[in-house]
């Protein structure tokens, strides 16, 4: 049984399936993350957001477990993605003069590796910014405002969310297809759901740095 499972994981379809499953779980994480971020809008001093952060901290070992799970999800998704980039490059050693579109490609589908790599760089910046930082004195909300209200910080977060949105534009329906589900009755809806999710997640994440930039670092709803 294990040799069969090993063969599955080594196969192109097995690796793609694992990428699809980790990708879909990461979309669930992003939805939870962005809903949590919305507590920033719940009041004018960040108290609700800080309380939400404190609740997560209070989970103790459960939070640690969740973080380990995220490391695993991101790790597998990124490692398989990198491997696919290399394998696909190898699969066409002599390049075309210019492989012109035949009609089905989209900007998002053609740039998955690039948008994925940009989101990876952002992930490192984001973890250093907030997971590694000590915000015990000022509170997490104040740290968010500090990081995002500088032009460079705000631009990094805004541009990264644009890349994330483009990545997700293709991701959802691609994952469903990889897991073997495609039906003429459902395919259009799956495409739309994925794209709505992509735009919603990217816009909601990006809204905070945009508002802070617009107001020069003030709580924008004061």
């Amino acid at each position: 049984m294990f040799s069969r499972f090993g063969a599955f994981l080594r196969s192109s379809i097995g690796k793609k399936s694992l990428m699809a499953v980790t990708g879909l779980l990461l979309i669930l994480f992003l939805i939870a993350h962005v809903v949590g971020n919305l507590t920033l809008y719940a009041d004018s001093d960040g108290a609700k957001f800080n309380a939400y952060a404190a609740q997560l901290e209070a989970l103790g070992p459960v939070k640690l477990l969740a973080e380990l799970g995220l490391v695993l999800l991101f790790g597998v998704h990124i490692a398989l993605g990198m491997r696919a980039i290399l394998e696909n490059r190898e699969a066409r050693p002599s390049r075309y003069k210019d492989l012109a579109p035949k009609g089905n490609r989209t900007f998002a589908s053609m740039t998955m590796s690039i948008t994925g790599l940009v989101v990876l760089v952002f992930l490192v910046i984001h973890i250093i910014d907030f997971r590694m930082a000590d915000f015990s004195e000022q509170g997490l909300a104040a740290l968010v405002v500090e990081r995002l209200s500088s032009p460079v910080g705000g631009a990094i977060y805004f541009v990264s969310m644009a890349f994330l949105g483009v990545h997700l534009w293709h991701a959802f329906q691609s994952a469903i297809q990889t897991l073997g589900f495609r039906h003429p009755s459902y395919a259009p809806a799956i495409l739309v759901i994925g794209r709505v999710l992509a735009v919603a997640i990217a816009v909601l994440f990006a809204s905070f740095p945009v508002l802070l930039l617009a107001t020069g670092g003030q709580w924008p709803w004061n």
Partner: peptide, 18 residues
């Protein structure tokens, strides 16, 4: 057939649908 496909050195499907 998938084992042979992988052995031949084809790339991975990215669902681009070209």
């Amino acid at each position: 057939m998938v084992e042979q496909m992988d052995k031949e050195g084809f790339g991975n499907c990215g669902n681009i649908y070209e």
